[in-house]
């Protein structure tokens, strides 16, 4: 079954003619993802690599190519508009890769999306979603993944790859890996993904990777304590990060003494999450639970 993306995904790539969009569209096609449309305002009617039709709007791509999922590579000044366009066009799975969207734009997007309860936004500023062997939507390196039954959720891109790499090296495959992104306001949070994994009969266990800043991990921990019944391993990045400094990700900042790794680790441990002692042990820790 997997979650969010699979063999039924019919993908539109918003920004398919940009350098990142084009590169990753080819990678996704090569992986076997059904890329059925590109959307680039001003380039409707053209085609990408002579194989993927380009539409002027997301609405057209939905009507004419049966798009149900969109991935966004458009630059930050235009990304909020692109997300809202996809939602308004009826796309129910929107995965925004773009890094650097102004936070007030995301605030407006988030409120706009409340009128579309069936639409899920993943990201922005994330590596995307992959269900190994079924579909890859995003920028993650395909070859490190192995089809299997462990779910991975993370706020960080390369740290997700690190976890996946450790699992694959141990012969443990993944059902779906979801990057929820490093921005302070994002579409899908840990709880959304955890509840999807809880309901997914192809996911037996989960690795959850958080980082400093905000309180998404604490809220997830409270939810896990009450609702999550599968084995779960956690790691929080940034225990050595100084307060008040933005650590690469817009959302990774300890402010006013809040959002420290210590608080997050304590909340997750209290919820029964098995914490990996260091980032090199995520795979082994998971293996010890299954």
């Amino acid at each position: 079954m997997a979650i969010f993306v699979d063999e039924h995904t019919r993908l539109a790539v918003q920004g398919i003619t940009g350098s990142a969009g084009a590169f990753h569209a080819r990678q996704m096609i090569e992986y076997g993802t059904q890329v059925v449309a590109g959307v680039v305002p001003g380039k409707g009617g053209q085609s990408f690599d002579d194989s993927v039709p380009i539409f002027e709007t997301v609405g057209e791509s939905v009507r004419e190519a049966g798009v149900n999922t969109s991935v966004i590579y458009v630059p930050p000044p235009f990304a909020a508009d692109a997300i809202m366009e996809a939602a308004a066009a009826g796309v129910t799975m929107i995965i925004a890769i773009t890094e650097g969207i102004p936070v007030l734009d995301m605030m407006r997007v988030k409120h706009f999306l409340r009128d579309f309860p069936d639409t899920r936004l993943v990201g922005p500023n994330c590596p995307g979603v992959i269900s190994p062997g079924k579909a890859k939507v995003g920028i993650m390196p395909a070859h490190i993944h192995l089809p299997g039954r462990v779910g991975v959720i993370s706020r960080s891109g390369t740290l997700t790859y690190e976890a996946v790499g450790q699992l694959t090296a141990l012969g443990i495959g993944q059902s779906t890996c979801v990057g929820i992104g490093g921005d302070p306001i994002n579409g899908t949070d840990f709880i959304d993904v955890l509840s999807a994994f809880q309901a997914d009969d192809e996911t037996d266990a989960v690795i959850m990777i958080g980082e400093i800043g905000g309180s998404a991990e604490e809220r997830a921990a409270a939810w896990i304590g009450e609702h999550f019944t599968k084995p779960i391993v956690g790691f929080i990045a940034g225990s050595t990060a100084p307060p008040g400094k933005r650590m690469g990700h817009a959302g990774a900042i300890i402010s006013g003494g809040k959002g420290t790794a210590t608080e997050k680790v304590a909340a997750m441990e209290a919820a029964g999450v098995r914490m990996s002692p260091n980032p090199s042990e995520m795979g082994h820790t998971l293996a010890s639970l299954i």
Binding site: S154, T158, Y161, A241
Partner: peptide, 10 residues
């Protein structure tokens, strides 16, 4: 990567 960079410090 930001997450891996933090994890490396850790």
């Amino acid at each position: 990567g930001a997450g891996l960079a933090m994890a490396t410090m850790d």
